[in-house]
Design a protein around this nucleic acid. Structure first.
Lengths: 315, 315
DNA sequence: CCGCGCGGTGCTCAGATGAGCAGCAGGAGG
DNA sequence: CCTCCTGCTGCTCATCTGAGCACCGCGCGG
């Protein structure tokens, strides 16, 4: 590791060789002939130029995607896809817009006509739907019942319909609430033809898109929608996150809850059967929930923003 | 040249492949195996990443040398060596210091024990002498007589002595003025044993260092030293620059002058025989003189600073 | 004086690489 | 329906490239 002492002439020589090689794309043999050196000498000078920092290679994308964070996130959690959008901490709505557009791009890129798309309800999924370009005839399946958000945007039905319109494929939708007061009602609803038809598609779903909720006030539309007793009960069970209505503990294990019997939506086992579930979390507060979701093995892809990615990776 | 449309997934994939290839140094075959692609696909993705600017290679030196300008200057004028010191426009003294150190480094790098070094008088040459590390026993020859600069630094004799001390080689010096009032006196001086001994070395000199003067007030110690008549006469002859007392026109041709007969120093023909003459000009005003010097073919190397290099290259 | 070690150089040869080409799938148009 | 066209893929083969090795000249110490 001794500091090689090269003077100005060596630096200028190395620089012009490096220019020819890296920027002009000449071969080392050509360069050796041109400068009257052996190709080995050229190779050694180029090596030294790399090591000394004279030649600097950087991989960076000018277009709102932090590729380094994306790759680290993907590799750390063994994901199929990770996209980290490079946005300053905007308000949630702007963040959702950026994530939605990136997720739409990702989806358009990976979806094939043989795919069957499942959509959970989340505001970021809604934002994605708005930005989605035409897809090649993919059927779209609704994964969760309708959550009434006063003054909120489209319902899960609207989103599924919209995406199916963009894709030209069949929309498997149903009008049922996400949560109902008792298990019997839920069971009855599940037997309704519309619901059963959608649920019958679940084993065929190859890609799903969902949000990630942190089990805390204001961090999960589901949390905000259920009763005080349910919140407390799930807290006691160690629920940290919810993905498409599937509850997870901090270490990513699905948590069986009584609430699940009173919900109309995809279950943990069915979710696990989906080859790639894409989640679109945002807001640094959700870091623990995102970690749980990524550890669970249920999730195959993520689209998020810089701050949350840093928080999840712990730096 | 169509804009390849790649989505976020493609960008992230390309980025992680590029990272493995360019930063981790894996081979394309290894990467292909790792990602389950053909090596051709990997090569094409890497090509696309280069073209799209996802992978950026830059050649830059963090150490006061502008390698790009250096290479351009060298290639433009077919020089053996060019070093452009990246300095903000300081005062002349600071500029001379930077140039002197760079020139000292360059000289130390290229000088061999078989070289014979010639030194013209210039303040930048003096600065170089002060920064010179030990050289391997090179003889040092004085190329020009002594110019008395009131309150100035070392004379040419001092500089040659100093460099010879650093090199451990013989110092060929002589005490004679650079200019004398008449040709007869000059001829007599040249016959002096000391002077003749130094001049006899001129054919053996392999490397010389000189300044560049612009034939204008304050831009050449020689201009400032000679009489009003000489100034005017040389102006009429189209003299633009002087290098070690050799006068050049704008197109780089040596100009024969009456003044030359009254000077004790190296002549144009002898200068041309020296394999590499290194010049150390500074100050943007000197750009025309530097162009003349470089065009003349007398000069084989240059050490200068960013602003003057830009001015010389015309950008 | 010789032998030794060391930094620097260029060689060998196997493996990596690129240019060009053929095959194939998908879409447009007859 | 067929045929052409286009874009993409992976192949062949000649060339390029890197790891390791042998050599050479130099300086040092015996």
């Amino acid at each position: 590791m001794a500091e090689d002492h090269v003077g100005p002439a060596g630096i200028v020589l190395s620089a012009s060789i490096a220019r020819r090689y890296y920027l002009d794309g000449r071969s080392k043999v050509e360069i050796a002939d041109e400068f009257g050196l052996s190709r080995f000498k050229v190779a050694r000078l180029l090596d030294a130029a790399r090591r000394s920092g004279l030649v600097r290679i950087e991989i960076r994308h000018e277009g709102g995607i932090d590729v380094d964070l994306s790759v680290r996130l993907r590799d750390r959690y063994g994901l199929q896809h990770a996209v980290v959008v490079d946005t300053p901490d905007d308000d949630d709505a702007s963040l959702r817009g950026h994530l939605g557009r990136a997720a739409a791009g990702l989806l358009a890129e990976v979806v094939t006509p043989d795919d069957v798309l499942g959509l959970a309800w989340a505001r970021a999924v809604s934002a994605m739907a708005e930005a989605l370009p035409p897809l090649p005839g993919t059927p779209v399946v609704q994964l969760t019942g309708v959550l009434s958000v006063p003054g909120g945007p489209d319902t899960s039905v609207d989103v599924v319909r919209g995406v199916a319109r963009a894709s030209g494929g069949t929309a498997y939708v149903f009008y049922a609430p996400f949560t109902v007061p008792d298990a019997a009602t839920a069971a009855a609803l599940r037997r309704q033809p519309e619901v059963a038809r959608a649920f019958a598609q679940l084993p065929h779903v190859t890609r799903a898109v969902a949000g990630v909720g942190l089990w805390a006030p204001g961090q999960s539309t589901l949390y905000d929608a259920v009763s005080e007793e349910d919140r407390a009960a799930l807290d006691r069970l160690g629920v940290v996150a919810d993905v498409s209505g599937v509850f997870l503990s901090a270490d990513g294990e699905p948590v069986a809850t009584g609430l699940a019997d009173r919900m109309i939506g995809i279950g943990a086992e069915q979710l696990r059967q989906i080859p790639e579930v894409l989640v679109l979390p945002y807001g640094t507060a959700k870091a623990p929930a995102v970690r749980a979701a990524l550890r669970s093995g249920l999730v195959g892809g993520i689209v998020t923003h810089t701050a949350l990615a840093h928080a999840v990776l712990g730096d």
